[in-house]
Structures are given as C-alpha cells and as structure tokens.
C-alpha cells in the first residue's frame, strides 16, 4: 500500500493508505477525525467538504492517495486554542444547525466563501451555499449566520462568548 503525507489541521501525518480509500474515510477512520461526514458519496450534499490546499473540496470524491502532499483543514481545525472561528460562533448564535450532520460542510464552505467575499449579499450567500444540502433548517438561519460572521470578521472584533 502506498505511503502518503497529509498535513491535516497543521499536523503532518505519514500514512499507509489503500489506493481506493476515499480521503473522507482516511480522515475519519485512520485519523479519527469524524467531524467530516459522509452524506452521499457522490459529491452532491457537501457534508464531507474540507479545505484542500486552501480551497473547498469533496473528500468523498477525492482518493486519499491522490491528495498526497496536500494541506487539509477539517471542521476540527477551525477553532484555535479553544477560540471558536467567527463562523462557528455565528452558526451557534443564529441557530444555524439542528441535527448538525451537514454542519461541518457548511462551516468549511462558509469560511472559504467569506475569505473570498467578505461582504456578501444574502443572495450571494445563498448561491455560495448551494452546493451544501441541509434537511433541517430551511437554510434561513444559516444565511443569517454567514451574514453575522461576515460582519464580525469585517469589524475584526473578537467575537463574544456565547451564553451557555
């Protein structure tokens, strides 16, 4: 089995992988990063979206072996030192998740989108999220959350700690 190197959430891993294993399965089963979810294994639902060398990609449509040498960020890598990413914070405050299964993919997609478009309209947000399916929320609170995160990030302010 081939050996590959993946840098995941800043940590480099040397891994032996079966060539047919999907990147999502390697992340979940070999690295125990189960936050990346498999929702359709066909690239449609977006639950498995990760950042691959800084861009969103479907980890269900990527063989781990071809990602050799890549830099990967998963949902587990969004918070830093216990500090949530402003997008995570906004998802929490705006009730942008219910069952939570699709949420990691939405978070990753949103983080990337806001890095390219820091001041989006609601319509642009909806279009940017159109590659991620959610069955619970009806999307409205997710759009609210991305809007809120964009404001927070533009202000550059540190985000408030949620009430819990």
């Amino acid at each position: 089995m081939p050996n590959i190197t993946l840098t995941v959430n800043g940590t480099q891993h040397r891994l032996e992988v079966d060539p047919r294993w999907l990147l999502a399965d390697v992340l979940r089963e070999q690295l125990n990063l189960t936050g990346t979810h498999l929702g359709c294994e066909q690239g449609v639902c977006g639950a498995c979206t990760i950042l691959l060398n800084g861009r969103p990609a479907r980890s269900c449509l990527t063989l781990a072996v071809t990602a050799d040498g890549s830099d990967i960020i998963t949902v587990e890598g969004l918070a830093h030192n216990g500090q949530l990413h402003p997008v995570q914070e906004a998802f929490w405050q705006e009730h942008a998740l219910q069952c939570g299964f699709c949420t990691p993919g939405f978070l990753i997609t949103s983080v990337h989108f806001l890095s390219e478009n820091p001041n989006p309209t609601r319509e642009e947000i909806r279009e940017a999220l159109s590659g991620n399916l959610c069955r619970c929320t009806g999307y409205q609170h997710i759009v609210n959350a991305v809007e809120r995160a964009s404001e927070t990030m533009r202000k550059g302010a540190t985000h408030a700690v949620p009430q819990d």
């Binding site: 060539p19 047919r20 999907l22 294994e41 066909q42 690239g43 479907r58 269900c60 449509l61 990527t62 063989l63 072996v65 071809t66 050799d68």
Partner: peptide
Amino acid sequence: VLAGGQSLIPMMNMRLARPGLLVDINH
C-alpha cells in the same frame, strides 16, 4: 485516467465504473 475525479469517482463509488488500472495524472 484519474484527473479531477468529479465524475469518475462517483461512478466508482456506485461501482458503475470498475477500472482495472487507475492512471492518476494529477502529478
């Protein structure tokens, strides 16, 4: 040939495509 894989991998996941040899041209 495996390029981006965005059409081939779904077909392989569904086992509608069963290549004997996958030539990964990404590198």
